[in-house]
Nucleic acid binder design. Structure first.
Lengths: 135, 135
DNA sequence: CATCCTATGTTTAGCAT
DNA sequence: GATGCTAAACATAGGAT
């Protein structure tokens, strides 16, 4: 073989492979995936926060129970506000449970305005549909 | 120029444009961006959860204070566990504040094992570095 | 183990509807 | 103000280090 005239595209890697969204079997791969995607989500969270002036909190528990979290302005502030709103709306809160894999979308209806609540419900339904579809 | 013999690929759109990660000026664009990226993060959260058997909670407040959240198995369970751990670890908890935009990475060191705490600190530093770099 | 590499799968900015 | 479209930006699986 003459390396100088080699015509092969010479692909160094197989590139990103398509995967099914189900539990990664190989323990090591699962760990690596968790690590990479955790960073990915945190990055997305900071971007959303910066781009749209939104407050955000992300809390993760690895399968071994290790905690990881990110928040802007910080986790506690976001949680406090979330808890405050969910409490105050005792019979005004709305929780939708997705049956597929136990995933849950929660949205508190804290406004008194009925129309706002309606719009929020719609939004929630759309999001639920989206998330379920994507799985 | 002869339009009929035009050899251009005829691009219908400009495709995804590169943007700076800073507050989107146009109000409408900002809203659309929030909506799209919110869905993106929820999707990423469900994927991470499914792929790695991790528990996750994401809470978002739009700039107008509207709440959106996603959790697996559900937001409350994840928050409860998070709060339980952060409480118990009063002088064992560790919070790093990123000065740049007020973003905060929090990680509770609940294990008694010192080495685990050390490893965790490293992880936390790496994450912080990553997030700050990406902005 | 975290990180680097790179081909490819996935997300999304800017418009149009 | 949510959705569909398309091209380009971006994230990441698999493998190597």
């Amino acid at each position: 073989m003459d390396a100088t005239t080699d015509q092969r595209p010479l692909k160094r890697t197989r590139g990103r492979q398509k995967i099914e969204i189900k539990k990664v079997e190989k323990e090591n791969s699962r760990y690596v995936t968790f690590s990479k995607r955790k960073n990915g989500i945190f990055k997305k969270a900071t971007e959303l926060s910066t781009l749209c002036g939104a407050d955000v909190a992300v809390i993760l528990f690895s399968e071994h129970g290790k905690v990881f979290s990110y928040g802007n302005p910080n986790v506690e502030k976001v949680l406090d506000q979330y808890l405050a709103e969910t409490e105050e709306g005792d019979d005004n809160s709305c929780v939708l449970e997705s049956g597929s894999n136990g995933g849950t979308l929660t949205q508190t209806l804290q406004e008194q305005d009925y129309e706002k609540s309606l719009r929020r419900l719609e939004e929630m339904k759309r999001t639920l549909k989206m998330v379920k579809k994507e799985q």
